[in-house]
């Protein structure tokens, strides 16, 4: 049997998809680019420019397709997706690399304690309705307590106790607390940069001085480019006021002057650690304090060494 014809046709088939060049083509599938580093043939260039360019391009693109169609693929509704390797050619970036974000207090704590980040699902399973419901937002599960038609009222509740309002207030408080924590995180991140911290400090001082006149800076000389302070208004107490109210206000002011709560809070802590020792002790001793914890530890050790009956024996 003569198979030369079959072989020849087979070879012809393959010839059409293989590209032979003196210098092998540089294919960069990551950028879908092929570079042909062979010198341009002057003869065919001068003879028929368009044809020459098209045949050059066809050869290059054929080589590119050959490498693209051998890449591993993934199926998708639009057709096969070829997984591209990272590009070989290095192009300059348009913007600098993103700077790492400063850790929030929780992130620092979680890192110190080795707590893994868990993605919280947006939906929650509702046992009663037997379906997935929003955790928050429209018809959120967090509003269940304030939206249900009947609520249990504790026995010792006030006469005007409104369970719906209490639940709503508690929820609003949680949101406010989260927002406060967020603001603190932002402030901490800003304070980490000494330049920003200094800038903030100066701006704060300047704002204070600007509203420290009787007219709250209304008749002060304005500097070039000085911004108007917003949200500052003069407030006057009513001219007629009950004596009780006046006394109350004076006492409040005096107590504020006397107390040094703000001062003590301002002082920096001895060691800035992610773990709040005071809180940790309170948690470990179940609210009884460090002394109780120490006593317990000492008692436990002695009893273990002695009768071996543990805490029960001491009592």
């Amino acid at each position: 049997m003569d198979v030369s014809n079959i072989l020849a046709s087979h070879a012809a088939k393959y010839q059409s998809i293989t590209v032979e060049k003196e210098t092998p083509l540089e294919v960069d599938p990551g950028f879908l680019t092929v570079t042909d580093l062979n010198p341009i043939d002057e003869e065919s260039y001068n003879e028929n420019l368009e044809e020459h360019l098209q045949s050059l391009a066809r050869d290059g693109i054929q080589a590119l397709y050959a490498s693209l169609f051998t890449l591993p693929t993934r199926t998708s509704p639009d057709g096969p997706l070829a997984q591209l390797p990272p590009p070989k050619t290095q192009l300059p970036r348009a913007k600098p690399l993103p700077k790492p974000k400063p850790q929030t207090k929780w992130e620092a704590f979680a890192a110190a304690k080795g707590i893994q980040h868990k993605v919280r699902d947006r939906k929650e399973w509702d046992e009663e309705r037997q379906e997935w419901v929003n955790r928050w937002g429209r018809n959120g599960k967090n509003k269940q307590l304030e939206e249900q038609w009947i609520t249990e009222v504790p026995l010792n509740a006030d006469v005007d106790h409104d369970p719906r309002k209490a639940a709503r207030d508690a929820r609003k408080e949680r949101v406010a607390k989260n927002e406060k924590k967020h603001a603190q995180n932002v402030a901490r991140a800003a304070a980490a940069n000494p330049r920003d911290a200094r800038k903030q400090d100066i701006e704060k001082t300047l704002a204070t001085t600007r509203i420290s006149t009787a007219s709250m800076g209304k008749f002060d000389k304005k500097l070039d480019g000085e911004k108007k302070i917003r949200g500052v208004k003069r407030k006057f107490d009513p001219t007629e006021k009950s004596v009780a109210d006046e006394a109350k206000a004076s006492v409040a002011l005096l107590s504020r002057l006397e107390s040094d709560s703000k001062k003590t809070r301002r002082e920096p802590q001895a060691e800035e650690s992610v773990l709040n020792t005071r809180k940790a002790v309170r948690f470990a001793s179940k609210g009884r304090g460090g002394l109780a914890l120490g006593r317990e530890a000492a008692g436990g050790r002695s009893s273990r060494g002695g009768r071996g009956r543990g805490r029960g024996g001491k009592r």
Binding site: T23, T33, T35, D36, L37, I40, G60, I61
Partner: peptide, 10 residues
């Protein structure tokens, strides 16, 4: 797809 042809590109 992009195709560059010439040794000058290198």
């Amino acid at each position: 797809l992009m195709h560059f042809a010439s040794e000058l590109f290198d």
